[in-house]
Amino acid sequence: MDTLSDLATPLTMGILYGGLYVVIALGLSLVFGVMNVINVAHGDFVTLGGYVAFVAVTSLGLDPILWLIAGIPLFFIMGIVIQRFLLYRAFKMSIDAALIIAFGISLIIQNASQLVWTPLSRSLMTPYSFKSFQIGEVYIPLVYLLDFIAAVIVMLVVHQFLKRTYLGQAITAASQDRQTAELMGINPAVVYQYAFGIAMALAAIAGVFLGLTFPFNPTSGVRFLIIAFGVIILGGLGSMVGTFIGGMFFGLSQALGGYFWGPTGQLLVPFLMVLIVLTIRPQGLFGR
């Protein structure tokens, strides 16, 4: 009985902050689906989103979630610029070239943010940062619940966008079969730009909730890239429901790993799980 109520806290928290991983993974999976390129800079875009929000909070005194009204368009445009002038050029050469470019961008962001914001760990402080609420015996920090709500909203919006709008349908078409999509009159260069822009907008959102949930530093990006990749692998590529469940699963295993094996177990357990899933079911738990 005692262990059960002890476990209730990490279980609930894991599922809730798994929502954050869902938002991070969605951006990565969108670009991968369309371009077949793993954007290794995605984690760094997320931390960059966190840092920009940090500036908005500390110097403008804005609420980080409110800041997203400006942050989302800003990152969207940034994404289109990066895609157009850097990634797409490399992409035309080869997928390896695109991967190496993304790696270069990742290094640039990491070290530039180290220069600008120092290597110290930061987090976004708000009046509700330390608030928590109670379900039965369990106390849950409010920000974890926000992560989960954000994940649900983002999932629904992205899903409706992909299903209902022309552009969304074009992105879906391009990710299902690039050549046929081109034959149907879809310009791949434009689709890539928008897909990358949306992925960056998702990174801005993820960055804010990351800052609210965990402390982050300039090199956190690699960790969140690997986490996002793990989430996608667990859920299976191209499955939105899979990504959602993958995120929850990852959060859960992280919380339980931390509960049983301390701080280093937190990530060790989910990473090992990713490798095991890859060995047994390379297409992911929910992949086709």
């Binding site: 793993i38 290794v40 997928i95 690997i226 280093t264 990473f271 490798l275 890859l278 390379p282």
Partner: peptide
């Protein structure tokens, strides 16, 4: 090789990227 060679192309790249990270965590423990 048992796990990473099941992945192709980009999957292989990222799958191998996870490996040093796991080792780092193991050795830190």
């Amino acid at each position: 090789s048992g796990s990473v060679f099941r992945m192709k192309g980009v999957y292989f790249a990222i799958g191998t990227l996870v490996v040093p990270e796991i080792l780092r965590l193991v050795f830190l423990r």
